[in-house]
Nucleic acid binder design. Sequence first.
DNA 1: TACTACAATGAAATCGTTTCAGATATTCCA
DNA 2: TGGAATATCTGAAACGATTTCATTGTAGTA
Lengths: 345, 345
Amino acid sequence: MAIRTTENGSGRAGGGGRVTLRTIAQMTGLSLSTVSLSLRGGTTLKQETRDKVAEAAKALGYVPDRAGVRLRTGKTNVIALVLDGAEDSIDFARQMIQGIGHAIKGTRYHLTVIPEFERNISPDTVRYVLDNRTADGVIITHTAPRDRRVQMMIDADFPFVSHGRTEFFTPHPFHDFHSEVFASTAVERLASKGCKRAMLVVGDDTTTNHHNIVTAFHRATARTGLEPRIMTGMQYLPPTEMRRMAMELASEPDRPDGIICDSEMRTIALTGGLMEGGLRMGQDVHLIYKQTSGILPTLFPAVDSIREDVFAAGVELTNLLLRRIEGAEPETLQTLAEPQPQWRN
Amino acid sequence: MAIRTTENGSGRAGGGGRVTLRTIAQMTGLSLSTVSLSLRGGTTLKQETRDKVAEAAKALGYVPDRAGVRLRTGKTNVIALVLDGAEDSIDFARQMIQGIGHAIKGTRYHLTVIPEFERNISPDTVRYVLDNRTADGVIITHTAPRDRRVQMMIDADFPFVSHGRTEFFTPHPFHDFHSEVFASTAVERLASKGCKRAMLVVGDDTTTNHHNIVTAFHRATARTGLEPRIMTGMQYLPPTEMRRMAMELASEPDRPDGIICDSEMRTIALTGGLMEGGLRMGQDVHLIYKQTSGILPTLFPAVDSIREDVFAAGVELTNLLLRRIEGAEPETLQTLAEPQPQWRN
DNA sequence: TACTACAATGAAATCGTTTCAGATATTCCA
DNA sequence: TGGAATATCTGAAACGATTTCATTGTAGTA
């Protein structure tokens, strides 16, 4: 039982059965070039020939060899997802990948995933893709205001799209959750519930998202008259610590009566700590969190949330990227996702 | 600002700057073949030549072109992960991918991910990989007893490894969580807590895992004298339904006083329902769940769990697969992961 | 010196595809 | 009827790497 890599003494590629352009050429009696031209819609060919070729290709189940195409044209038909290791948004990776998968279904694109280990994003993986022409385009997430990966790809004029905005002057494709609307909607909701002191909990202060959300929070609390408070920069804080902090918070004299949290993981730690501290959710304290998975609603059916649809984000990011690869201008490839309030009480 | 795909009128690949074998050949004054031979460790070459080539390659930062290698040798240097859409194990996808990523770091392998949408696994995606020689090996998860994907790859003699065992006679590489040990350990723990009626909740009854765990559960309850009860086949049941069922369960006259659950998602639904039904976890009812993420411990620091390290599983699966690709015998590539009890009270 | 043995290197074929420059027919017009 | 203008199709040359086979050079031997 020889395995594939050694099944062929010469070390050459492919089995005898593989259908190539040559197969079709022999079958139809045409030349290689005619077949190739025909398959890619050559207009100088007789209609009869084109039908013949198309028919044969279909009958044989021809699929262009990726290596051949790639070698000749430089097109990889691959898009790369740089997957951040953050676990703030539960189920983020799975949904994002499913979304991308859904969007490339039926296209010739494959998805390669490049896991990022460092929490402090480094441009190395992107540099690798650029240097080795390993993909036709890149999707990155958790974008920073002056993200070095973005800078690098702009400089190289390489197609990419970011999940998150940046502060660069040169426009680039992005799709982002509308954090500002999230923050203001949440604050207004707290105000309508009669809250007086609002606290915003944003874990990671390195992303652009952080800046947007904080600004919008300040603006909204000023407008509604709530007393603002912010807890941030905790990307390295383990959940257990977070939980402990929440417990202590529960017994503070002027503790917040309304909390907004943009991370599911932290919401869980928060909730656990607050409840252990003796507070009743939805009575002593109101909570609104950014929801990306189905976990928290299952657990706390009565807690308000504002949803970001990560699957849809994956689909959108992919569509933007594909359009970019086909040459669309960056300015036309920038979209925001509207937060979806899920008021539950 | 032309984008990459059109930067070159001829439509040819690569910029002028790309370092190929030819670059090295010109630099060293040697021929293409000598350089190639040398780089792949040709022993018939003079040491001096070999040093010269190695030096030049390093200086130029030479990396073999994947398309070239693939076209000539048929080797893709890609491994494919067929990613099941199940969300029972929270954070499964992320950790699995991180694990694989860790294992291929430093190798020439890339990872492509093929999301699976149908909950009822179809062999189409695997067939595609096989037909189009899209990867050198495949990793599949959520394996069924007579998994058609496994059958297909065995028949095609294609390198793969499954996360989960099967019932096929022909041996194949696998790595699996030792569910039997999980079940018996959990039952024993419940017994030691004084439980009388144990319920096993396993969501998906299509996997091999299901069968293993149920068998072991029966054996262990018989051994310890616990009254067994099983809740299963709920792969299509939404969490909210599950939660409702748990709530009803709470008020049953002969309700279980010990529960074992192999899915985090269902554990959450269960816990939510039981608590809403008035039960106190760890007092009225004991719960032990299979833990794959950090979510539940954060939420319920006092609830027992038995951990499966999905990251480690990813690493192991990859190593097995790479060995298989290199020709190792399937029999030698079968491992089990020991469950890691996390007793917390 | 002539012949063999062996080490070191090079030339060429190949993988599958695309594309450009030619090569055949075929048709048109004077 | 000849030459040009059109239609269709083909040949050949890449893209980058690997591998086989041939060639060169050198040394050893009789």
